[in-house]
């Protein structure tokens, strides 16, 4: 459907197209599916958007774990709505990635075969109901921090999908904080589960912003191409700065001995996440990697009959209409 009307073998043409592309991006013009773009830009976006889509889909699992055990019907209806949103976000993003010329089938294959990555955060278990609160508050909070600038990214379909997603994420973060407020004002045992969940999700949430800028593989080019607007470290700092006062409001202790407010800069100084753990989770050695992948593969296989039935039904209707 989308094509690039350019002779890819003519170096002169390619160079001219490339400098035109760089000018357009620098001028904050949006790049649309039919526009010429360098192969590396296309590949970078396919990688980033599909990883993002896969994260939404895998992200349904840790939350889905508590659907049948939510503490009230109200909480259950809300969590169900949230998990439905994650599926919706995955679909918006797959569709955006497909405008770059990759098929849905290839994208799904990449996830199921393990060649594509998804966010490391979803490889941690949700052990108590408080984890659902911590995920909404911290993980969705970190996601919003990352995603709001993506609403201005240079690739039109991705930017537009992100605007829609960010609007919906705001509900996710608030429902999480709402759970934390209830627990923090509850019995000593409820307070203890809130603190325990906070302790376990704090560091993985900081890791969501990715490695330090100095170790970040794709950062520089993505900044130039206006895919990325702020560096990993800038966004991580911003997250810490807004989240620590919220933790204080909840009466929770940030699990970081080095954390302190630095008056002159107006920022919090904080300790170093365990990057070995981050690398290990990315390599597939997190607490739930195997479980998440096995579940997704099983769900995909279990859904095969639905896809087959839909096609058979369409074929039957077509033949009776003819």
């Amino acid at each position: 459907m989308y094509s690039q009307a350019l002779d890819e073998h003519d170096d002169g043409l390619r160079e001219a197209a490339n400098s035109r592309f760089e000018e357009r991006v620098a001028a904050e013009e949006k790049i649309e599916p039919n526009d010429w773009m360098p192969d590396a830009y296309r590949k970078t976006l396919i990688r980033q958007i599909s990883q993002h889509a896969h994260s939404e889909i895998i992200g349904m699992q840790p939350e889905g774990n508590w659907l049948t055990r939510a503490p009230s019907l109200r909480r259950k209806a809300i969590l169900l709505a949230k998990v439905q949103d994650e599926a919706g976000h995955g679909l918006y993003l797959y569709a955006a990635a497909e405008t770059l010329g990759i098929s849905r089938e290839e994208l799904v294959d990449q996830l199921l075969s393990g060649t594509a990555k998804y966010s490391s955060i979803f490889n941690y278990p949700t052990l108590t109901w408080a984890d659902i609160g911590a995920i909404g508050w911290l993980v969705d909070g970190a996601a919003i921090m990352n995603q709001i600038p993506l609403g201005r990214c240079s690739y039109g379909p991705y930017a537009r999908a992100m605007v829609r997603i960010c609007k919906e994420e705001s509900f996710h973060q608030r429902q999480g904080f709402d759970i934390m407020v209830a627990l923090a004002n509850g019995t000593p045992q409820q307070k203890a589960t809130a603190q325990d969940a906070f302790n376990r999700w704090w560091w993985p949430s900081l890791m969501m912003f990715g490695p330090h800028d100095t170790d970040s593989l794709h950062s520089e080019q993505s900044m130039r191409w206006r895919i990325k607007r702020f560096s990993n470290d800038e966004l991580r700092q911003r997250f810490v700065d807004v989240t620590v006062p919220q933790a204080e409001f909840l009466g929770l202790r940030v699990p970081d001995e080095e954390l302190r407010y630095d008056e002159p800069t107006g920022h919090y100084v904080f300790g170093e996440p365990d990057w070995d753990e981050f690398e290990a989770v990315l390599r597939g050695q997190g607490p739930c990697n195997a479980q998440r992948m096995a579940h997704r593969r099983r769900a995909h296989d279990d859904g095969a009959w639905v896809r087959e039935a839909a096609e058979a039904h369409a074929a039957k209707r077509n033949s009776s209409a003819a």
């Binding site: 705001s170 509900f171 608030r174 709402d178 407020v181």
Partner: peptide
């Protein structure tokens, strides 16, 4: 409850 305004922020 799908809207953020449903939740009261203290």
């Amino acid at each position: 409850y799908r809207h953020p305004t449903f939740y009261e922020i203290p």
